[in-house]
Design a protein around this nucleic acid. Structure first.
Lengths: 148, 148
DNA sequence: ATCAATGCAAAGACTTTGCATGGTT
DNA sequence: AACCATGCAAAGTCTTTGCATTGAT
């Protein structure tokens, strides 16, 4: 991970952009988390830590990181954008628990199959695939079992 | 399709809800389209036809239809909810052209494989699966080829 | 007549933008 | 010093809500 974020500095430099306090803080926070997050998550945890960065800066930096392909944006049924670091784990999807909102990564051979079938059948030039599976996670299944 | 929409009337009745002008108009419009749409699409095409229904009514009716499982809501990278009628074609996903925005349905054996693998591996109680594939459709591929 | 549905206007949630100020190189 | 980034406040989008009025049964 570190390596990718190092590259970000070079990217900024190559574009005449600046390696500012705000960007460093946000990068640092992303390294610490590495999992799914949204702009508000980021904002509030930075604020809580006292290393405040404004919302506009967060939004702007996330866009920059997305453009540089350090993070990826995806949508779940929540009316806001979620992000996650682009990582080695290609071809994965998200399990989203409808009860607690938890997001769990998964990967499956089905994803590969899907990609190959889709490209072939529909004459569609594939770029990115986004898979969301909604349901109930183990913990919430247990919790509701215990209630009865 | 007609049949499902007939049931809607019964549903309304059974809940003490009313079969109003607005709801009839929206239902009629959905029958006419049957494909992907969002609230604004609906609003503007109804307005164009002179059968205006207010935005709040549209949003409220779409929610009702979703609750009744006549339509399904899904999210693409566009900052708004899209809907589509729930149909016989189970286990399908959407190809979304990043250039023209067109949405194409597809189905694939990969979807089945995915479902079975996910349920097994993660101990996740599956409810609904939402697959979006981003890329470039045939028409846009051609168009950009012709430009060169 | 009753109670739900509608439309308007206003509020909400999330995100983006204009602009003056401050920070990086 | 030059120019980008930041923060604030305000504007944008899409969606929801309060409330008085209209409409369905």
């Amino acid at each position: 991970m570190h390596k990718e974020f190092e590259q970000f500095k070079d990217f900024l430099e190559s574009k005449g952009l600046k390696n500012t306090r705000g960007r460093k803080i946000i990068l640092g926070e992303l390294e610490a988390r590495k999992n799914h997050f949204n702009a508000e998550d980021l904002y509030s945890s930075l604020t809580r830590k006292g290393t405040r960065v404004s919302r506009p800066t967060i939004y702007r930096t996330l866009k920059l990181l997305e453009r540089f392909r350090l993070i990826e944006r995806f949508d779940i049924k929540k009316n806001c954008f979620y992000y996650e670091p682009i990582s080695q784990k290609k071809n994965h999807g998200h399990l989203i628990c409808e009860q607690c909102g938890k997001i769990i990564d998964f990967s499956s051979n089905g994803v590969e199959l899907l990609k190959s079938e889709v490209g072939r059948d529909k004459d569609f030039k594939l770029d990115n695939i986004s898979i969301q599976v909604f349901g109930v996670c183990r913990d919430c299944q247990r919790a509701s079992k215990n209630k009865n």
